[in-house]
């Protein structure tokens, strides 16, 4: 079984995000970057598939600046076998990135192309499905758990009010959410081994994203709340406020 996992370097979710001087990008100073948490699930899923089968290969691909090599190494430390860095503008989003990833995947032989459900920087939730469409492959998004047998994948995806069980023919695209694949911590041995694994570098064939960010701003601060009171005696006043002031119940 051969898997390709597309991974992105993103700010840690704890990081304070500041808007840069140009008003339309993020100031990278002091930002701690990590492997996108959803992509961790995807790497974990691919490595587990390989381990369960006792054979196979996991290739991780990232489009970004030279720093993305570090992110690729962290996936190699989790058990991926080879990495590809597509050098290009790390701020590129959506269709631009999907085009670059699709161009890379097109020439490769694989059974599964795995993605995170979304990147926690642009929060777009699109690249996996776009790559599937560009490669004309079947896909299931927001998958919490899947099984592979022969050329068939059975995936569980979260939908409103339940779970959809989807059957797909390989090769196919899956985008992962939290579920069965709690990511492992890389072992020291894994980290050492990662340094020797192949990391190929190429230039990304970025397309046009068709969307331009004109301006970033901070969300309006929520007015700090009002403490209605202490203990159960405050309940009638809370209910009154919700009814008469907020008019929401």
């Amino acid at each position: 079984m051969k898997s390709i996992v597309c991974i992105k370097r993103v700010p840690d979710t704890e990081t304070r995000i500041r808007i840069a001087g140009d008003g339309r990008s993020i100031d990278p100073a002091g930002v701690k970057y990590v492997l996108n948490p959803y992509d961790e699930f995807a790497v974990e899923a691919a490595v587990r598939q390989k381990e369960a089968a006792g054979s196979g290969e996991v290739t991780v691909v990232s489009m970004g600046g030279p720093e993305a090599a570090e992110t690729l190494r962290s996936a190699l430390a989790m058990g991926a076998d080879a990495a590809v860095l597509l050098r290009g503008d790390p701020a590129a989003q959506g269709l631009a990135v999907a085009a670059a990833l699709a161009a890379e995947l097109r020439g490769r032989d694989f059974d599964l192309a795995l993605f995170g459900m979304k990147a926690v920087d642009d929060d777009l939730q699109a690249v996996g499905a776009m790559v599937a469409e560009l490669l004309e492959l079947p896909s299931a998004t927001v998958v919490s758990d899947f099984e592979v047998s022969g050329g068939t994948v059975v995936a569980h995806r979260e939908i409103e009010g339940g779970t959809e069980v989807v059957e797909l023919k390989t090769p196919c695209v899956l985008t992962l959410t939290k579920g069965a694949y709690e990511p492992r911590y890389a072992s020291l041995k894994g980290i050492m081994a990662a340094k020797k694994k192949p990391l190929e570098e190429k230039t990304a064939e970025l397309g046009d994203s068709g969307v331009t960010t004109d301006e970033l701003s901070y969300p309006p601060e929520r007015q700090p709340g009002r403490i209605v009171g202490r203990g159960p005696d405050a309940v009638p006043e809370l209910v009154r406020l919700l009814r008469e002031e907020a008019k929401v119940i």
Binding site: G94, L95, A98, D123, L124, Q125, A126, V127, A129, M130, V131, A132, E133, L134, S139, T141, V142, R157, E158, I159, E160, E164, D208, S209, G210, V211
Partner: peptide, 23 residues
């Protein structure tokens, strides 16, 4: 921006070669 919409819209955009903004 439902489970179906967010699965479908990026596919439609990619098929038409146009941009997409979610949520």
């Amino acid at each position: 921006a439902s489970a179906m919409g967010k699965d479908l819209a990026p596919r439609v955009a990619a098929r038409l070669g146009v941009g997409y903004a979610s949520e």
